[in-house]
Design a protein around this nucleic acid. Structure first.
Lengths: 328, 328
DNA sequence: TCGATTTCTGAAAACGATTTCAATTGATTA
DNA sequence: TAATCAATTGAAATCGTTTTCAGAAATCGA
C-alpha cells in the first residue's frame, strides 16, 4: 500500500507538506502543490481512513437505526437522511434492529468504540434510561420517534393529530365501533396515535374498546392475523385504524379470505401512504407522512449538533395529511 | 475517553498485557486477567476501533452495493448477507448506487481508503474494466449479477432458465406476441433473461419483436410508463415479461387506467416474487428467486475469500421457480 | 535599513491499539 | 547440577495520518 511517506519521498517533500496539500491548508506554494499532486497521481495514493480517523478523532460516520429495511417508510426516511449526509460529507451506517431490544442496545456500542460520531434512532425499543451511558459519547437524534425522558433533539410529527384526523374521518363516515392496531408499547409515537384516536372518540362521547386494541403489529402478516382475530369476534369493530400501511394491507388481504368486505363490513385506514396503499384493492385510505423530509430534518439536526450549532426542537412544520381512497 | 493506557495504569500492568486480555492471548495468568477485567469494567473501557483498524490493517467491514433500498428484492438479499455477516463478526456498510455509474464507482474508493475489507455488488452499472484498479485492494463478490469479463466470485442463479420457463408458461397459455421489459443494458443478468425468452420463442419458430423490448425499467412508475407505451401501439403484444415485480405491478396498475384487461388483453409476468405480487389484483404470476439465500451464499463466499479459503463458483444449487397467479 | 509580520516548510509528537523482542521466572530433562 | 524449555510480562516499535512547534525565507512599514 502506498502511504503518505511514499508520496512525500516521491515528491521530495515532507509528510507534513503532503498532508497540507491533501487538506488544502492555505500556506503551500503552488509549485509544491503540483509536485505533491503529481506524486499522488503517479503512485495512485489514497489516504488511509483508519489513520485519519484515529488522528482526527472523528469518523464522519453516522449510524442510523431502523427496525426493518423491508418497510418502505424507513427506507424513505433513509433516503432523506442520505441526501443531507452526502451534502455534508458524512457516511451512513445503516443498522437493522428488528425491533429487538438487545440488538438496539448493541448498536449503541458503536458510539463507545468510536465507530460512528452519532446515532439517529427511528424507533425506540428500550427504556430511555438504558441509553444514558451513551449520551456523552456522541450526539443522538430521534427521528419520527420520541420519549418523554429523552433530552436529545427529536424530529417528529404530530402523531396525535394524525390519528385524530383519521378517526374524525371514520366518524364522519358513520363509524362508531373503531379499533386500533399499532406498534410497540414503549413507543411514544404509538401512544400518541392511540390518544389521538381516543380523543376523537371522546369528543363524541365514546370510549376505545380494549378488545379492539392490537399492539406490536408491524408487518403484512401481522395485519392478516389481526383480521383473523377480528373475524373471530362476536362483537366486531366496523372500522380499524392501523399504525402502518403494511399492517392495513395485511388486513385487507385477509379480509378477502374471511368473506368480510372492505369498506362495507370493515373500514380500514393506514398510516404512511406507502406505494402499496395505491396498489392494493380497494385503495387504502391513509395518513401520509412526509418521510423523506423527516429524514432530511433529522440529519440536518445531526449536522448542526456535530458542529455545535443550535438546532430547532420545536414540533416541525411538516404536516400529516389524510389521503382518502376506497377502504373507508 | 479512557484508553488502554488508562486501563493498564489502573490495573498496575502494561498496555501489552491489557491488549492480550482483550484478545484472549493464551499466556496470561488468571490473576492478571481478573485485574484487567476489573479495571476495564470500572473505567467503562471500550477499545477504540480506529486504532484497532489502523494497527490490524483490517476493518471487519464489508460494503454492499445495491441499486435501491426501496426494492424489497435487494433488502431481502441484504437480510441474508447480514445474517452471515453477524455470524462472522463483520459489519455491513450498505451503499445505494441508484443505478448511477459514477456513484457506483465512487463507492469503490472505500476499498482504496481502506474503509472496508471487501465489496459485494448486487448490480453492475459500469463496464467491468472500470473496476480493474480496485481488484487488488480487496475481494469483490458479485451477488445476483455477473459479467463475462469479471474474474471474481459470482453468486448467481440461472436467469436464462428463469425467463425460459416463464416464457414457456406464456406460450402454453397460447401467447405468441410476447414483449420483454428488463433492467440495465450492461447487466449480464438482464441479457440472460432476454436470451432465455428469445430461446423459448425460437423453440417454436418465433422471434422477439424489437418494438416490444423495454430496457432500463426498474420501478413501479417505469412499469406504468411501459403500459402507456404499449397501449399506444397499433400492434400490441398480448403478454409481457418483466424484470421485476415492481415493474409488473406498475404495468398492472396502469392497465386499469388504460382500459386494458389483465390477463385477457395483456398477460403480465414478473420476477422476484415480492410481497406486492400477492397483494395486487390480479395476483401476479412471477418467477420466485430465493433472495435471502443468494445473500447468504454471497457473504459466505466473501468470508471464505477473506480467510483465503477456497470457494465454490459453480452455478449454485438455488433454483428459480414459477409462481402462477392470475395475471397470466 | 532594520525590526516586525507573514509565508512556507520539516522534524517530531501525537492518536490508541497490537506485536515483536527480550528478560525473567519456574518447571523439566539429561 | 546444568541445560533446556515453557510460561509470563513489559519496553518499544509500529500502523498512517495530522498538527504543533520552531526555524528560515520573504514581505512589509517606518
Amino acid at each position: 500500500m502506498t502511504t503518505i511517506a511514499d508520496v512525500a519521498k516521491h515528491a521530495g517533500l515532507s509528510r507534513a507538506t503532503v498532508s497540507r496539500v491533501i487538506n488544502n491548508y492555505q500556506y503551500v506554494t503552488e509549485e509544491k502543490k503540483k509536485l505533491v499532486r503529481d506524486a499522488m497521481n503517479e503512485l495512485g495514493y489514497y489516504p488511509n481512513s483508519s489513520a485519519q480517523r484515529l488522528r482526527n478523532q472523528k469518523t464522519n460516520m453516522i449510524a442510523i437505526l431502523v427496525p426493518r429495511l423491508t418497510n418502505p417508510f424507513f427506507t424513505n426516511i433513509i433516503e432523506g437522511i442520505e441526501k443531507v449526509a452526502a451534502e455534508n460529507g458524512l457516511q451512513l451506517l445503516i443498522c437493522q434492529t428488528k425491533s429487538d431490544k438487545q440488538k438496539e442496545l448493541n448498536y449503541f456500542k458503536l458510539l463507545k468504540t468510536k465507530q460512528v460520531d452519532g446515532i439517529i434512532l427511528t424507533a425506540i425499543e428500550n427504556d430511555w434510561e438504558k441509553f444514558s451511558p451513551f449520551l456523552d459519547c456522541g450526539p443522538i437524534v430521534l427521528c419520527n420517534e420520541y420519549d418523554e425522558e429523552a433530552t436529545v433533539p427529536m424530529i417528529r410529527l404530530n402523531q396525535f393529530e394524525g390519528s385524530y384526523i383519521g378517526t374524525r374521518h371514520l366518524i364522519e363516515r358513520g363509524h362508531r365501533k373503531i379499533g386500533y392496531c399499532g406498534g410497540g408499547s414503549m413507543s411514544g409515537l404509538s401512544t400518541d396515535r392511540k390518544n389521538g384516536l381516543k380523543k376523537a372518540l371522546e369528543d363524541i362521547g365514546l370510549t376505545l374498546n380494549p378488545d379492539w386494541i392490537f399492539l406490536k403489529r408491524y408487518s403484512i402478516e401481522d395485519g392478516q392475523k389481526v383480521m383473523k382475530e377480528i373475524a373471530a369476534m362476536d362483537d366486531r369493530p366496523t372500522a380499524i385504524f392501523t399504525g402502518s400501511d403494511e399492517v392495513a394491507a395485511g388486513v385487507i388481504k385477509e379480509s378477502k379470505n374471511s368473506g368480510i368486505k372492505v369498506p362495507e363490513d370493515l373500514a380500514v385506514i393506514g398510516f404512511d401512504n406507502q406505494p402499496i396503499a395505491e396498489m392494493i384493492e380497494p385503495g387504502l385510505t391513509t395518513i401520509e407522512q412526509p418521510s423523506e423530509e423527516i429524514g432530511e430534518k433529522a440529519m440536518e439536526t445531526m449536522v448542526a449538533v456535530l458542529n455545535e450549532q443550535k438546532f430547532d426542537t420545536s414540533l416541525n412544520g411538516l404536516s400529516l395529511e389524510l389521503v382518502v381512497r376506497d377502504s373507508t
